[in-house]
């Protein structure tokens, strides 16, 4: 067994204070009774949680975010799963290039993507804001979908598929009756990751707001810039709790060790 190094342990403790402290402080500030952000709160109240619902823009933008995230994630899977599957099962010429192309949207800076989409589709092409947002979000989550699906396909032995094919099942049907049921957890995890990524996006969405269309993070951003009350802290608590719930789901489907690769 390794002898623990106390200096290292102390250092790591501090790092984790840094990682988790701010989230706790936000949570504490959310229960403040005062009209200003303060920590520690001078009085306690739940009124800022109530205020989340009182500001109608939060609910409206949340619905837009939800629509975009669900649709975008779904599209990215419908488009990404066949590509990931094809590339994982065959060494076609140009495979590396294709893989690089499919993950390239993460390399493009978000603000560049947002600006370009606004200019090209919305301003020059007359595509409505909502649809442009959808294109943008589908693009930014595609790499996540493809990566997660590819890694769960890599853990699924091709011999099992070949067994099905040798038993007379055509390849396309093999995919649905053998492969898909076995990578269910991966698809689920890909969905969650892509969904979270889309829900949290700011740099692309910030360019794509129009009459009645904006996403929740953008609404939060502008609220923070204009108001100094703890409403955003309360909303943050709700979001952190939701994130924790999703993490529980990921832990169940993919295992959190997926993140440390």
């Amino acid at each position: 067994m390794k002898r623990g190094n106390p200096a290292l342990a102390a250092y790591v403790t501090l790092v984790y204070f840094f990682l988790l402290g701010p989230l706790f402080i936000v949570a504490a500030a959310a229960f403040s009774g005062s009209n200003f952000l303060e920590f520690p709160p001078s009085s306690l109240s739940l009124k800022w949680f109530a205020n989340i619902l009182a500001v109608s823009a939060f609910l409206e933008t949340f619905i837009v975010s939800l629509q975009i995230a669900v649709l975008g994630t779904f599209l990215s899977l419908v488009i990404g799963v066949p590509a990931a599957y094809a590339l994982s099962r065959s060494a076609v010429p140009g495979r590396g290039v294709l893989q690089a192309i499919f993950v390239s949207p993460v390399i493009v800076p978000g603000v560049v993507l947002g600006f370009s989409l606004l200019r090209f589709y919305n301003v020059q092409g007359g595509v409505p804001v909502f649809q442009t947002l959808l294109i943008g979000h589908t693009l930014i989550v595609l790499p996540y979908s493809i990566r997660v699906i590819s890694s769960s396909l890599a853990n699924f032995e091709p011999a099992i598929e070949e067994a099905a094919i040798s038993l007379g099942c055509p390849r396309w049907r093999t995919f649905f009756v053998v492969v898909l049921p076995n990578i269910r957890a991966g698809v689920m995890a890909a969905f969650i990751l892509a969904f979270i990524t889309s829900m949290n996006n700011v740099p692309v969405s910030v360019f794509l707001t129009g009459p009645g269309v904006s996403t929740l993070p953008i609404q939060m951003l502008s609220y923070v810039e204009n108001f100094f009350d703890p409403t955003i802290a309360s909303l943050s608590v709700v979001l952190i709790a939701t994130t924790a719930g999703f993490m529980f789901l990921i832990e169940r489907t993919l295992g959190l060790s997926y993140f440390a690769r």
Partner: peptide
Amino acid sequence: LILCAVLPLLTSSVVRSFSWIVI
């Protein structure tokens, strides 16, 4: 420890930046 590192990672960047306004 990995869990505690992933939680902030998956939290909205608005929330995370906002936390430093509180601090």
